[in-house]
Simulated assay, not measured.
Amino acid sequence: MRLLMLLLCLLLVSCTPPPPPLRIGLNAWPGYEFLYLAEHLKYYRDEGIEVQIIPFSTLGDGRRAFERGQVDVMGSTLLEPLMARELAPVEPVAFYVTDYSNGADMLIARKSIPDVAGLRGKRLGLESGTVDVLTAGLALRSAQMGYADVDLQNLTQPQAVNAYLRGELDAIQTYPPFSQSVLKSEDAHVIFDTARSPGNVVDILVTHKDMVRTRRDDLVKLVRAFHRAQQYHRAHPTEANAIMAGREGISPTEFADSLKGIQLVYLPDQASYFQQGKLARLMLTTHQTLQSLNLLKQTPCGAACLDGSITQRAGTP
C-alpha cells in the first residue's frame, strides 16, 4: 500500500504542468534593457524560470497591456502603475528600482525658443498618462508656468518625434532612444532635463498583487537574473552595450550615451528605496502631482503598492 501511495504521489508530481512563462512588458528605455540582456545571456534559464519578453513602443502601450492582464511584469515609472490602478481593476506592486533619470528625460525645443519660458503659447508634444506628464511638469514649474500656458498635443513618442521633424510641434518631451532622433535635427536643442531634478523620476519593475502571492519565487529569480545582467555590464560594458543597443535599433555608442542620462540602481541599493521609505515618499509625491492635474481620484495606495521582500530574498545567498 505504501509503495502504491508513493507511486501515485510521483505520478501526480510528474503530471503537474510547469508554470507559464513570466510575460515581461518591455518599453524602449536604457534602464529596462537589462531585462533583455539577462535573456540574451541565458540568466533566466540559469535561475530556472522561463520568460517571454513582449516589446512595446511606448510606456502607454505597456501600461494598457498591464491593465488588461496581458503582461505579468512591466518596466515603468511610478506614474504608470498609479494610472493603471485608477483606470482598471488591477493591484500593481513595485518590487525593484532599476534606475533614476538624471538627464535622460528631456524637453527639446526649436532653437528659436531659448528656454522654458519661451514655450508660452507654443505647441508641446507629449504622451498623456505617462511619465511625460511629470517631467514636462517639472520643466514648466521651473519657469513658474503650468500646462495652461502651452498648447498641449497628446501624441505617443513615435508620433511626437515625427510631428516635430515635420515642423508641426515647437517642443517635445522625450527620452532615449526617441530623443536621439530629434537631436539629430539641426533645429533642436535641450531646454530642460532631469539632471536639474535628479532622483525624482525613478524607473521600476511592477507586477500584479496576485503574482506576488502565487509566483514570489519566480520574481526573486527574475531579480537575481536582472542583477547578474547589471553586473555583466559593469564587467563587460562594450559587449553589453552592443547587445542592448541592437534591441533598440541604435548604435552601441548611442546606447552608451543614453546610459549617461540615468543612474543605475543595483541590488544592494534597494533597501534605501523600500525599507528606508524613499520609494514610498516618491510614490506619494507622484500621486499628489497627478491629483493636482485631475488625473487621479483614488486615495494613495501606500505600502499596498510596494513589496521590498523580493529584493531582500534575492540578495540572500
Results as ranks from 00 to 15, higher is better:
residue 45 R to P: 00
residue 35 L to M: 14
residue 88 A to D: 07
residue 86 E to D: 06
residue 60 G to E: 10
residue 22 L to P: 04
residue 27 N to S: 14
residue 43 Y to M: 08
residue 115 D to K: 12
residue 71 V to R: 13
residue 21 P to S: 07
residue 89 P to R: 10
residue 50 E to R: 11
residue 61 D to T: 06
residue 100 Y to L: 08
residue 115 D to S: 15
residue 51 V to H: 01
residue 70 Q to T: 04
residue 19 P to F: 00
residue 103 G to T: 13
residue 30 P to F: 01
residue 79 L to K: 05
residue 63 R to W: 02
residue 46 D to A: 07
residue 79 L to F: 00
residue 29 W to P: 00
residue 83 M to V: 09
residue 18 P to C: 01
residue 41 L to Q: 12
residue 62 G to C: 11
residue 38 A to K: 07
residue 23 R to P: 02
residue 52 Q to R: 15
residue 87 L to Y: 01
residue 70 Q to I: 02
residue 117 A to C: 07
residue 101 S to W: 00
residue 43 Y to K: 10
residue 105 D to E: 15
residue 103 G to R: 10
residue 83 M to I: 11
residue 107 L to E: 13
residue 79 L to M: 03
residue 59 L to P: 06
residue 109 A to P: 12
residue 77 T to A: 12
residue 111 K to Q: 15
residue 65 A to P: 11
residue 38 A to P: 08
residue 93 V to E: 03
residue 28 A to G: 04
residue 23 R to G: 03
residue 31 G to I: 08
residue 30 P to C: 05
residue 35 L to H: 04
residue 78 L to W: 05
residue 103 G to I: 09
residue 64 R to Y: 06
residue 22 L to Q: 04
residue 70 Q to G: 06
residue 22 L to K: 06
residue 77 T to L: 03
residue 78 L to I: 08
residue 19 P to R: 09
residue 63 R to K: 15
residue 32 Y to T: 08
residue 83 M to G: 03
residue 87 L to I: 00
residue 20 P to T: 07
residue 104 A to G: 13
residue 30 P to E: 07
residue 58 T to C: 08
residue 38 A to L: 09
residue 70 Q to H: 09
residue 62 G to D: 11
residue 56 F to S: 10
residue 74 M to I: 15
residue 36 Y to P: 06
residue 89 P to G: 12
residue 107 L to P: 12
residue 81 P to G: 03
residue 107 L to S: 11
residue 39 E to R: 10
residue 73 V to H: 03
residue 101 S to T: 14
residue 56 F to R: 05
residue 105 D to F: 09
residue 103 G to N: 13
residue 96 Y to F: 09
residue 55 P to F: 11
residue 35 L to I: 14
residue 64 R to T: 10
residue 25 G to D: 03
residue 33 E to C: 01
residue 47 E to F: 04
residue 84 A to R: 01
residue 24 I to F: 05
residue 94 A to H: 00
residue 75 G to P: 09
residue 101 S to R: 01
residue 110 R to N: 15
residue 87 L to C: 00
residue 112 S to K: 14
residue 55 P to W: 11
residue 30 P to H: 05
residue 48 G to E: 05
residue 64 R to F: 02
residue 98 T to F: 02
residue 46 D to F: 02
residue 72 D to S: 04
residue 58 T to E: 08
residue 27 N to L: 08
residue 42 K to M: 03
residue 99 D to E: 13
residue 103 G to W: 06
residue 22 L to E: 04
residue 26 L to Y: 04
residue 22 L to R: 07
residue 95 F to M: 12
residue 89 P to I: 12
residue 112 S to Q: 14
residue 48 G to F: 03
residue 48 G to H: 06
residue 83 M to D: 01
residue 19 P to W: 02
residue 69 G to F: 05
residue 104 A to F: 04
residue 44 Y to K: 05
residue 108 I to G: 15
residue 62 G to T: 15
residue 83 M to Q: 08
residue 41 L to W: 12
residue 64 R to E: 15
residue 53 I to N: 03
residue 28 A to N: 13
residue 22 L to T: 06
residue 117 A to K: 14
residue 66 F to A: 09
residue 90 V to H: 06
residue 76 S to K: 02
residue 71 V to I: 14
residue 23 R to C: 03
residue 102 N to K: 11
residue 88 A to K: 07
residue 107 L to C: 13
residue 114 P to K: 11
residue 111 K to E: 15
residue 103 G to D: 10
residue 64 R to A: 12
residue 106 M to I: 14
residue 25 G to F: 05
residue 38 A to F: 09
residue 67 E to F: 05
residue 40 H to L: 01
residue 64 R to L: 10
residue 60 G to T: 04
residue 39 E to T: 01
residue 83 M to P: 04
